[in-house]
Amino acid sequence: MTNLTHLERLEAESIHILREVVAEAERPVMLYSVGKDSAVMLHLARKAFYPSPPPFPLLHVDTTWKFRDMYALRDRMARESGMELLVYQNPEAQERGINPFDHGPLHTDMWKTEGLKQALDLYGFDAAFGGARRDEEKSRAKERIFSFRTASHGWDPKNQRPELWNLYNAKKAKGESIRVFPISNWTELDIWQYIHLNDIPIVPLYFSAKRPTVERDGMLLMVDDDRFPLKPGEVPVERSIRFRTLGCYPLTGAVESEAATLPEVIQEMLLTTTSERQGRVIDKDGGDASMEKKKQEGYF
């Protein structure tokens, strides 16, 4: 008798999901955001289809405002996995110069939500893998693993398809699509543990180092390039920081930390007292139910 560990069970479930989509969808794609969850999802895809490379491309919906380290890792992982990398930047957002400093919530809406919809429509993808987890946020806890979207990418939380056993319904009409979340049942700790056990490459920003920062509205922001508009008298300060989640650098709060290795990062996570999305501005605009509302509009 072999007692499978919880990570082995989670891995088997995720691989099963990845293969079901490839078997049943016409044009799958993997949404790759370069964060730790994406890193695990990509690794699982490589395991699922080995010795073939994963039979779908990676899609990065870019906002042009990610950390530089993220772009570097993205390009490296695409090379190493043997997968095609598609990078999409919403041309309208580019033309209007939409940025997180001047445009607030519009930045996320145009670059991410609209950009994603445009990219999916452009390439005609009918199934998109995403690295969301149910433990992240309350509306995610109720979303199916195969999450059906209308032709206009809308999500109807009241009218989700029942999902029984490990039988996923991938049937859909032309124009409709499915968002698939293979790591739905993983927790933040599972992710870190799995990265540790499998030696999965992640962006160095997750580890502590001296980085130039400024403090704004109680958040520590990293000055990652010279597009960061400093206020009069504001001078970047070198602090020992790291990030628990990664997004657009002007919207992602750092934590002061000395954790420079994976075990130290996990240790800090276990002893910490705030949730990981707390450093993200995105969950807060729109109040209590903002993520649910964003998802209905087509956000991942």
Binding site: H6, A141, S184, N185, D288, E292
Partner: peptide
């Protein structure tokens, strides 16, 4: 645990939600 906005208003749980602890 009552996740979705609609049900918080109604004060009831209306769908399957998954929770994790160890």
């Amino acid at each position: 645990v009552d996740g979705l906005a609609a049900e918080r208003e109604q004060g009831i749980t209306i769908d399957v939600a998954y929770r994790f602890f160890a």
